[in-house]
Write a protein that binds this DNA or RNA. Structure first.
Lengths: 135, 135
DNA sequence: TAAATAGTCCACAAACTTGGTAGGCTATCA
DNA sequence: TGATAGCCTACCAAGTTTGTGGACTATTTA
């Protein structure tokens, strides 16, 4: 399951996608409109900025804004950044791979099945962007 | 990601599938062969028994065994029981549904996408059984 | 240049989950 | 009746999640 933090991140990013090209948006505005605890949102946005998804401006007229067009930001990127691995097992993860202890990946039915699950999921989240989240 | 508990459950169930129709298997044997902390395994097996996946016999010659043939036990059942929801959002879960707060499911792109992810995953785990985990 | 604005950074903490451990109880079998 | 083996309850350390508080810094504007 996606954490609350991830859900907040998607809400904020959706809001910023709607306001793309309208200049910086205040943290407080996003927090109020999307009902997200402001200090928590603050840290999420900062994390997204450090990952080059967002940029910000300080002072009056400042705020946060998308660094790229919404259609350039893949859903999978956000999930990996804020939520972590997409795969259901470490031994099957592309970006967070870890070897199985006491389990031979060559002869593991669970492993094989979880690769299929991973690929089915990736086929969706790698091909959707923030733009696709807008209605 | 699947918890350690879930991974242990699958290892134990795989072992019991291999030994299906060979009579009860000791907790201690499963723990030793699959390198699972014995007391932790004990609680997992008990949970599987209460969910009618396993049955057990006490006393000498006792142990745990599958209540049904391996091909009758769906992978999805085990995941839901030990790990929880398969969907990435509560508002999209079939067995653990919870309404989104501050989010209209009718007009939510994230919601729609996560339904697709859920269905792609279910298409696999609902159609695989313990038998498919054997190599 | 001072004041107001708005993001940045650091520290902390309550609540919950995970991954166990300890020890006694109960049923079964020889 | 004694050994065996699962059942049950309680507990616990560590890590993660979901935040909060407060000071600091950069920017804009009067």
């Amino acid at each position: 399951m996606l954490s609350m933090k991830s859900q907040y991140a998607f809400k904020a990013l959706t809001y910023l996608s709607e306001k793309f090209n309208e200049g910086p948006v205040l943290i407080s505005e996003i927090a109020a409109k999307k009902k997200i605890p402001i200090k928590f949102l603050e840290s999420i946005l900062l994390e997204l900025k450090k990952a080059d998804i967002l940029d910000s401006k300080k002072g009056k007229g400042g705020g946060y804004f998308l660094k790229q067009k919404p259609e350039k930001v893949k859903v999978s990127t956000i999930i990996r950044l804020i939520n972590g691995p997409i795969a259901m097992l470490p031994c099957v993860s592309l970006y967070f791979y870890e070897r199985c202890k006491n389990c031979n990946e060559k002869h593991c039915g669970l492993h094989d099945m979880m690769i299929q699950v991973r690929d089915a999921t990736l086929n969706i989240v790698e091909n959707r962007t923030l733009k696709d989240l807008l209605v």
